[in-house]
């Protein structure tokens, strides 16, 4: 069963220097209960894809220019704001990267949790408080009743991220989008949070989109992977397709350039030369051609289409078969 289907999504922003396409023709499917990772570097459009699905694009500059976001048969890209609000937080919710900015500093933890419950259910005030306290306990916050009366600044970074997760999950959504949920955390706290997300996902059967730049996090948490570069999907497949037989030179470069614990110390690392192009001056044909070690003349002329390698594996490269 497909829970979410993103079809040819195009998201544009109007800026002083004209309109830019932050997301250009992104398509993927997410089954009920599945986990999909979106990986890429800053500016590749992974967060904008998430905001487009959520209907949280910055207004008035951002808009979905074309394409569909089909959630349980309903195209959210065309849905009214009232309808979107009903879905957001109840059926589809989001875990943000910076718990300090995602939480309101002048409201208690309790109020920020019960607010969501009040909006989406018709529980009484007392029921809302007990739902919220239970949720805090489930995300592993000690003494949840006391924490309910406290403010975000009184909690540590790891605890704040647990609160953000509690807010996202309190209405038992079918789909959670986690945008770099552990990037701001220390590695031991990251391990705790990833473990928590995994447990909650097992318990509730929710689907998840994990957005991150960390290939380690992707390998550990995801079943399917979408690799994005300069607003486009350059490769997608199962986690084994991507890590065992990456086809796109960018995916290969990313995997080769991360230092791992198995690396020979002090050996030069593989690099991807140059840097991500600006969205204002994207290469006309293959967007990766100017950094690609395998590029030839036609890569600068002919835009590569998405090619289907297997039922799960797709790649956007003219030369994938020869590499």
């Amino acid at each position: 069963m497909t829970l979410l289907s993103v079809r040819e999504l195009v998201t544009e922003f109007s800026t002083d220097e004209g309109t830019v396409r932050a997301v250009d023709g992104v398509s993927f499917d997410l089954p009920t209960g599945g986990t999909l990772g979106i990986v890429g570097e800053s500016g590749c459009g992974k967060s904008v894809t998430a905001l487009s699905i959520m209907g949280l694009l910055p207004q008035p500059n951002g808009r979905i220019a074309s394409g569909e976001v089909v959630y349980e048969g309903e195209n959210l890209a065309m849905a009214s704001e009232v309808r979107r609000q009903a879905i957001r937080g109840a059926e589809v919710s989001m875990i943000f990267q910076e718990p300090m900015t995602a939480l309101n500093p002048v409201h208690t933890i309790g109020r920020q949790l019960t607010e969501v419950v009040a909006l989406h259910t018709n529980q009484s005030a007392a029921e809302q408080i007990s739902t919220a306290t239970d949720m805090l306990a489930r995300v592993g916050i000690p003494e949840p009743a006391i924490r309910m009366t406290e403010y975000p600044h009184q909690l540590s970074g790891g605890m704040r991220q647990r609160v953000v997760i509690a807010i996202a999950l309190i209405c038992q959504p079918n789909l959670v989008i986690a945008d770099e949920p552990t990037t701001a955390l220390d590695v031991t706290i990251q391990a705790q949070i990833l473990e928590l997300i995994r447990t909650l996902q097992n318990d509730t059967g929710m689907a998840m989109i994990m957005i991150t730049h960390d290939l380690g996090v992707i390998a550990e948490t995801c079943e399917q992977v979408v690799v994005m570069y300069a607003g486009q999907v350059v490769e997608q497949g199962t986690v084994f397709d991507i890590f065992d037989s990456p086809k796109h030179p960018y995916t290969r470069g990313l995997l080769a350039s991360i230092p791992t614990l198995d690396n020979q110390p002090k050996a030069p690392l593989e690099i991807i030369p140059g840097m991500v192009p600006s969205l204002h001056e994207l290469p006309k044909a293959c967007r990766f051609a100017n950094r690609c070690t395998f590029a030839e003349a036609r890569c600068e002329i002919e835009a590569p289409p998405i090619e289907v390698l297997s039922s799960s594996h797709q790649v956007r490269c003219l030369k994938w078969a020869q590499l």
Binding site: S156, G157, G158, M159, D186, V187, T188, I189, Q190, A191, Q192, L194, E195, D214, L215, G216, V217, I218, A219, E220, V239, F240, F243, D244, L255, I258, T260, L261
Partner: peptide, 25 residues
């Protein structure tokens, strides 16, 4: 030991024996 076990490894075949630390610093 727990720091090293906490690093996510970019290899989907490898299952880490993670030592989860409780609480914060």
């Amino acid at each position: 030991q727990s720091l090293i076990s906490a690093i996510p490894i970019p290899d989907p075949h490898r299952k880490t024996n993670r030592i989860l630390l409780q609480g914060d610093v």
